[in-house]
Simulated assay, not measured.
Amino acid sequence: MEIILGKGISTISFGINQLELIAQLGKPDKIVFNSEEDQEEQNDPDPVFQYNSLKSRFTFFNDSNGRLGYIRSTNPDLTFKGQKIIGQKIDIVKRDVFSILDKKWEIEEYFTFSAHFNEPNWLTISEEYDLVTQIELGVLFKENSDEFDWPMT
């Protein structure tokens, strides 16, 4: 599974709908909705499709006509430019694998893990024990705007 910044993962592009994802991957193993906190804030929580064999979750944004807008993955075969990410040392991943990115990473420390966020590419790398455990990526925003910049599908 190859990360394509701003577009998605492999053939799964931001902007597709639920039926298009099912056509590519089959029925999800589980469909969940945003956490209870999020549900209190939203009248229409976003569905999240979970695929166990891919160790990935795909979030569809209801406020954007149900389009795929966010991907989370812990898949050990996840790559960027052919280089594996999950299970690798965070410093090496940021320095070598994602070397082409803007070097500005916001780091948030949580109780048991840290999240390294690269806003220009809407990419978050989660790490525990100095190793990458999860990648999260979202559809990009248009420059100087709060509108999504949906890729051509």
Rank of each mutant, 00 (worst) to 15 (best):
142 K>C: 04
63 D>A: 11
52 N>F: 03
59 T>G: 09
69 G>P: 01
151 P>N: 13
153 T>Q: 09
38 D>S: 09
97 V>W: 02
5 L>Y: 08
39 Q>P: 00
112 T>R: 02
107 I>T: 14
38 D>A: 11
38 D>T: 06
129 Y>S: 03
82 G>K: 10
4 I>R: 03
21 L>Q: 12
85 I>W: 01
84 K>Y: 13
9 I>H: 07
45 P>G: 10
13 S>Q: 14
127 E>I: 05
99 S>M: 11
15 G>A: 13
109 E>W: 03
9 I>L: 08
139 V>F: 03
4 I>Q: 08
124 T>R: 05
47 P>N: 09
53 S>K: 01
45 P>L: 08
69 G>R: 05
138 G>W: 02
124 T>A: 09
153 T>V: 09
58 F>G: 14
60 F>S: 11
4 I>M: 04
118 N>V: 00
73 S>F: 05
78 L>V: 06
64 S>R: 12
109 E>G: 06
9 I>F: 09
152 M>W: 12
19 L>M: 10
51 Y>H: 00
64 S>M: 13
50 Q>E: 07
53 S>I: 08
86 I>G: 02
82 G>V: 05
71 I>D: 09
72 R>T: 14
57 R>E: 15
42 Q>S: 12
49 F>R: 13
23 A>N: 14
26 G>T: 12
118 N>C: 01
122 W>G: 15
30 K>S: 12
37 E>F: 14
116 H>D: 08
73 S>T: 13
21 L>M: 13
115 A>M: 15
53 S>E: 10
7 K>R: 10
83 Q>K: 15
89 K>I: 09
89 K>L: 08
26 G>I: 09
96 D>L: 06
35 S>T: 09
107 I>P: 00
52 N>H: 07
45 P>Y: 05
44 D>N: 13
22 I>P: 05
135 I>F: 00
88 Q>V: 07
8 G>T: 15
140 L>G: 05
66 G>A: 07
131 L>G: 02
20 E>N: 13
95 R>F: 02
61 F>M: 14
31 I>N: 03
62 N>I: 15
128 E>G: 14
6 G>S: 14
107 I>H: 01
141 F>K: 11
81 K>Q: 14
126 S>I: 03
54 L>K: 09
43 N>Q: 12
67 R>Y: 07
15 G>H: 08
152 M>H: 11
71 I>K: 14
91 D>H: 02
